[in-house]
């Protein structure tokens, strides 16, 4: 399925799931920032991450 763009309605739905109370004004203010954040995530997904495990327990000694 194609990736859908974020909308004010989707921001409201996510905020409700997380338990944040956002006014319509806040939703409008946050939307562009969330779109920027989504663009960063897209940049990360463009790397070939096949077989790469996440670095949750970051351990510099492994480097």
């Amino acid at each position: 399925m194609a990736e859908q763009s974020m909308t004010e309605d989707s921001v409201r739905a996510m905020a409700a799931l997380v338990g944040l109370k956002l006014t319509d004004k806040r939703v409008a203010e946050l939307l562009p920032q969330l779109q920027k954040s989504a663009a960063l995530a897209k940049e990360n997904r463009s790397l070939d991450l096949t077989g790469v495990e996440p670095d949750f327990k970051f351990d510099p000694e492994r480097l």
């Binding site: 954040s37 989504a38 995530a41 990360n44 997904r45 790397l47 991450l49 790469v52 495990e53 996440p54 670095d55 949750f56 970051f58």
Partner: peptide, 11 residues
């Protein structure tokens, strides 16, 4: 998105 970023961090 967070998990993918941690994968990218390993690279």
């Amino acid at each position: 998105d967070y998990i993918v970023a941690q994968q990218a961090r390993r690279l």
